[in-house]
Design a protein around this nucleic acid. Structure first.
Length: 919
RNA sequence: GGGUCUUUAGCUCAGUUGGCUAGAGCGCAGCAUUCACAUUGCUGAGGUCAGAGGUUCGAGCCCUCUAAGACCCACCA
């Protein structure tokens, strides 16, 4: 037995993935469909052009586990890859693993601490080797998890962010920038985490609004306001606004710096806001970003008073070595004692924090490597404004441009050992005066090098990970200066909207700088997956949802379908487990659809041949009883078939080849063909515009509400095996990008399919008779009306009690059996004699429910209500037509439609009134 | 301070360039039960589309303002 009564994902998923992977179909060098597609011995690719489709995965942390955001990423990216693979493109989904410089370092440093060590006990090479081993030990989990999610990536091409080719490429770029004069070493204020002892780029800083105190301190007779009294030892001036009358005559004079014996000048600078505090501000160029700039304008001395470990230096002995916090208390106490503390105010201000440990960052004067971003940003802006990259959502393009316009030089030095070493060496042979102080060299494995007799030592810093990550599309596609590479630029960069600036903007700048081309043609940004209540997931809140738990409970497909549901580009959205359950149910539904179709196919082959068609088709021993309606007299079925023209519907060229041609023989068959075609069209349109949720929704409705609930129900009467096979295949293929496992599991279990569905051909359109398809809508209307009315009638089990009568209605007559089957009414008869029972409110059909007079009377209220409702609709339509502007200005087809509707409603309402009178 | 986004059913969300009676899943209520599927079928209730104004023959959709919320950027001592 091939199809169990329910789909159990756990029994299939890992085997299916292993089979895919072993077959090499995820590899881009392999054609995505058989070379000889139609078995005629000729290579079908002859003369065809292969289109490439590439996506590189935003690399998950190599030694971590996937979180739900990765789950979303895979669901989105793999759907695209699988869709375009089915479309016949040569797809390449490059997987990645991130060394996650700072993140991993923080984890490892904690580990070191646990072992009772400090990082300063080891040199950089030792630390690097230790973290490498640590990562190697932990590695692999996330790669298995990607497989569990069904990511159809080319595993042979997995790129680790510390791979040799990555480092090479990063060094090449750095060298080019160095030669182009875009790299400089500067002593600047950087955001520095005293706990992790490293600097950050502006973008890594987390600003939080906090309550603080603004103290007023007297510097002689001038009172300044400050939130950081402990830095006064680093003050080298007082600034006042040049327009400020209060201080005009003091400019150029000096004041005494409290607690010291220094005099500092009073300078005029726009930075001082006369409205704020006392209008005078102390200037500490070494410990404040604004003051640094003021200092540059006025050539002020920079006195560093806080060391990298967060303790005081270069201060009077009394304060030396204290932490900033201790020092602040002591300074305030001393000032108070001397009567210099003039006041304090509670204020709210924004404070920079380490995004990892939350420590308050210290602006620190440090020599670092900077990238002059002016040119990079300018070029990127030009290409963006020219619209070379399409953004989903669209508004993010503008947001990136604005970001790039205000971008400041980029600090790429990090004082952590886990990362790509900066390939710069400092001269230590002082007498070699003609040689530059710094040289570029790739030999970063050496702590010291010699060149032309001059000795240099290595800079111990590593690159900001975003510097190397910005090369991701280049390194993952193996782009080189020499070769044509159809996979670069990428078709799309899919990633989180939260790293739009840190990553996407930098990839654009770097891609253009290195290759001269934008690195991707489109960008799809997804929002955050929030918890069920719309809150951000975080470990501390304990509301983190593990995608692997969901995969284990509901299956990979269910997870993918569930997480895509209702999600749109760039939007944060709450995660709903119910959507995953709905996905699981769809998988099971599809499974059972296949089970039914297979059983029909098996039965048909038993009828055709005295011997079973194939061993597999008879191995099915599911429900032995035949559907009762199949026992209907064959004659009546045949009559229906004969009453329709013998139309042979050839499939469109390019449609799936797995089954033979079909002939539609009843209007339900034409109808489902039309619905499936519409569905395919919608899915194609949605995929082109990254409307994943809509594509899934359409497939869900088509499979469940149309295929199962109407088409398969009608096929219980007349089985069109060829059409069943082909429509099932079509739906399986169409759903495959979103639910790869269940569709493959079914494909493998069906008796007539070959190969993998993962490499099947995207279906063409089905042929059908549009008039017949439209007529089936009438049947649906009749059936719906019968069902609804039966439910509304008093009593239970009405569908068993009352039959259906019709008068002069060929549609009902021809489809008696079908209507009977779908409504479950016991009988359908032509009306003999005068009308009786309850007439259905169908405008164009004379159909009665054969209910006794008593029931009709009881139904009177409902009928009255119905008349009122139709009356309201009619009023609305009439009002529209009374408006001369509508008749004049609205498109003619709409006006005509309104007129027709009015006629229809009027006919209906007068008929209903007559019915009411008769009761 | 600047910017982006959100507000539609009890919950989570769709609603493509304005066009008829605003949809889905889950939840809820009722009915069904030898059926491929209870991970089921059928039926139903539930919405002043945040509020106010405007444009238009016509607005959930476009414009203005207001309110509530989320996020991003920024040097406010």
């Amino acid at each position: 037995m091939k199809f169990a009564s329910s789909y159990e994902p756990g029994e299939y998923e890992s085997d299916i993935y292993a089979a895919w992977e072993a077959s090499g179909i995820f590899n881009p060098s392999v054609p995505t469909y058989p070379i000889d597609d139609n078995g005629d011995g000729v290579d079908d690719r002859e003369g065809e052009e292969f289109e490439a489709y590439s996506i590189v995965m935003p690399p998950p942390n190599a030694n971590g586990n996937l979180h739900i955001g990765h789950g979303l990423t895979v669901a989105l990216e793999d759907s695209l890859i699988r869709y375009y693979r089915l479309k016949g493109l040569s797809t390449w989904y490059v997987p990645g693993a991130d060394h996650a410089g700072f993140e991993t370092w923080v984890v490892y440093e904690r580990e070191l601490e646990k072992q009772g060590h400090a990082r300063f006990e080891f040199n950089r090479d030792e630390l690097y080797a230790r973290v490498w081993d640590f990562v190697a030990e932990q590695r692999g989990n996330m790669e298995l998890q990607l497989r569990a999610l069904g990511a159809s990536c080319a595993w042979d091409d997995l790129t680790f962010t510390l791979d040799e080719n990555v480092v090479d490429r990063v060094y090449t770029t750095f060298e080019k920038m160095w030669n182009d004069g875009m790299i400089y070493r500067g002593e600047k204020l950087v955001n520095f985490c005293p706990k992790h002892r490293t600097a950050f780029a502006d973008i890594e800083v987390e600003h939080k609004d906090e309550k603080g105190t603004l103290w007023e301190i007297a510097y002689d007779d001038i009172v300044v306001s400050t939130t950081r009294p402990e830095t006064l030892f680093g003050d080298t001036a007082i600034a006042v606004n040049p327009e400020d009358k209060r201080y005009k005559d003091r400019i150029g004079k000096t004041v005494h710096l409290p607690l010291t014996d220094r005099e500092i000048p009073i300078i005029a600078d726009e930075h001082a806001d006369p409205e704020y505090g006392t209008g005078a501000v102390k200037i500490t160029p070494a410990h404040d970003f604004d003051d640094f700039e003021v200092g540059e304008r006025h050539n002020l001395e920079r006195i560093q008073v806080i060391a990298e470990d967060g303790t005081m230096i270069n201060v009077p002995e009394r304060y030396d070595g204290l932490t900033t916090e201790e020092c602040r208390k002591l300074v305030l106490a001393d000032l108070k004692e001397q009567g210099l503390l003039k006041g304090e105010k509670k204020i709210e201000h924004s404070v920079a924090h380490c995004y990892k440990c939350g420590t308050v960052l210290e602006p620190m004067l440090k020599e670092q490597w900077f990238v002059d971003v002016q040119k990079l940003a300018r070029v990127a802006i030009e290409h963006l404004e020219a619209g070379e990259i399409k953004f989903y959502p669209d508004n993010k393009r503008r947001v990136v441009i604005d970001y790039l316009k205000n971008l400041k030089d980029w600090n790429i030095s990090r004082q952590i050992p886990w990362g790509i070493a900066i390939p710069m060496f400092r001269k230590i042979t002082p007498e070699a005066t003609d040689e530059p102080d710094w040289i570029f060299d790739r030999r970063t494995n050496l702590a010291e090098i010699e060149k032309a007799g001059v000795k240099y030592i290595r800079d111990e810093d590593t690159f900001d990970t975003w510097f190397s990550s910005s090369h991701w599309p280049i390194v993952c596609t193996g782009w080189t200066e020499e070769n044509y590479n159809p996979y670069y630029p990428l078709n799309v960069m899919e990633t989180g909207a939260d790293i739009l600036f840190a990553w996407v903007a930098r990839m654009i700048m770097m891609g253009l700088y290195v290759t001269g081309e934008v690195p991707f043609r489109e960008v799809y940004l997804h929002g955050l997956v929030l918890d069920a209540h719309g809150k951000k997931m975080s470990k501390s809140k304990g509301n983190v949802i593990n995608p692997m738990d969901l995969v284990a409970r509901f299956g990979s497909d269910a997870f993918r379908l569930g997480i895509l549901r209702g999600r749109s580009a760039g939007m944060n959205q709450a995660f709903s487990e119910n959507s995953v359950i709905a996905g699981r149910n769809l998988c099971n539904k599809l499974w059972n659809i296949a089970r039914l179709v297979q059983s029909i196919v098996d039965e048909a082959s038993e009828h055709l041949f005295s011997e079973p068609a194939s061993p597999s088709s008879t191995s099915y021993t599911g429900t032995p009883t035949e559907p009762s309606l199949r026992d209907e007299p064959v004659g009546s079925v045949r009559n229906i078939r004969l009453s329709r023209s013998n139309r042979k519907m050839l499939r469109e060229k390019g449609a799936s080849d797995a089954s033979g041609d079909y002939t539609t023989s009843n209007m339900g068959e034409d109808w489902i063909c039309r619905e499936i075609n519409d569905c395919l069209e919608a899915v194609e349109r949605d995929m082109a515009e990254y409307r994943f949720a809509e594509a899934v929704e359409t497939l869900y409705q088509t499979i469940w509400d149309k295929y199962a609930d109407w088409f398969l129900e009608s096929q219980k009467l007349f089985q069109n095996t060829e059409l069943l096979k082909q429509t099932l295949e079509t739906l399986l293929i169409a759903l495959h990008p979103f639910a790869p496992f269940v569709t493959e599991a079914i494909w493998q279990n069906l008796s007539w399919t070959d190969g993998f569905i993962a490499t099947a051909k995207w279906p063409g359109r089905l042929q059908f008779d549009p008039i017949a398809a439209e007529q089936f809508e009438n049947i649906r209307t009749i059936v719906n009306e019968v069902r609804g009315t039966l439910q509304a009638l008093p009593g239970t089990n009405n569908s068993k009690k009352y039959g259906l009568l019709y008068d002069n209605d060929s549609l009902v007559q021809e489809n008696e059996l079908l209507i009977k089957n779908l409504t479950k009414v016991p009988t359908i008869n032509s009306l003999d004699g005068a009308p009786r029972g309850l007439r259905l409110a169908l405008a164009n059909h004379e159909v009665y429910l054969d209910v006794p007079e008593k029931v009709v009377v009881e139904y009177k209220g409902a009928l009255t209500e119905r008349i009122l409702a139709v009356g309201r609709e009619l009023d609305a339509l009439n009002a529209r037509m009374m408006n001369p502007n509508y008749v004049e200005k609205a498109p003619r087809h709409l006006v005509k439609e309104t007129e027709e509707q009015i006629e229809e409603k009027q006919a209906l309402i007068s008929r209903l009134k007559r019915e009411l009178e008769l009761i």
